[in-house]
Amino acid sequence: MKVNKVLLLIAMISFCFIGANAQVKKEFEGEIVYRNFENHSKMVRRFSSGMAYNGARTVRVIMKGANMHIIDESLQMHTLLLPEQSKVILYSDCLERGMEFSFDAYVNNYMMSCSPDPRYVSGVKQENKYTMNKVSQGEFNGEICDIYKVDVEAILQAGETVHHSELWVSSKYDIYKCYWYFLNGIQAPGIVLKRTLETNGKVPIFGKMNSFVASEVQEIKERLVSDDEMSVPKNFEIKVSDSPFKVVGLMKDTKKYLKKKKMYPGDAEKDLDVTFKIEEEWEF
């Protein structure tokens, strides 16, 4: 009888403890601004329809519940991930139009290349070899982060691709899984403050497709996000499409527009300060 009482007490304390933890850590709502350094091989730039360029990129990620709004400020492109409505909407501020796709079809094609979860792309099952290991801890902007190394090997019909990533993850907030799509499917257990993603791929005949992206948080703002921020501006025309591949047209048109207005970041690089990246610390 006494034993039962003790067990009950332990269980109650445990529940309280879990409850207290759950109260302290809550899912993040607000916005995170990242600044990227990007370097892509010619083949990647050519195949990306203008989305990949060499230079700096600013990306704002707004999170509200399970929904996420990714704003590529450099290309003025928006990606609205609305899993509860089973749709993804992409739109361009420049063109004032966009496209809507089925959630699963879009994320499986474009936002899960590093995921450990199997997915179907054009009816074919894809599965990656995925390893993620916590290797150490580090401090970034005064915050202690867990550092993870992630290796992903993807064998695709069109060739093979290897991804190596290093993530500096803050455990200050919990995150909705939707955030993983922003990380190409890498399942980070919190908000990533700093990361590198190196991708080495090969497409038969065409050759190598290599990319290096290093990204650092510029700002994290926890705030209430309005519903308007998770929707398309009213005057924008959104076309519903059954094939995620049709997004290429929107991307090409965006690039064309930006180039015409001399606003395409890949070109602007010529006139602005050169984008560089160093990984070590200056001693002086």
Binding site: N39, N54, A56, V274, F276, K277, E279, E280, E281, E283
Partner: peptide, 13 residues
């Protein structure tokens, strides 16, 4: 005369 940083990458080459 090492300054701590020995490696630099440029986005565009």
């Amino acid at each position: 005369h090492d300054l701590g940083v020995r490696l630099v990458s440029f986005a565009s080459e």
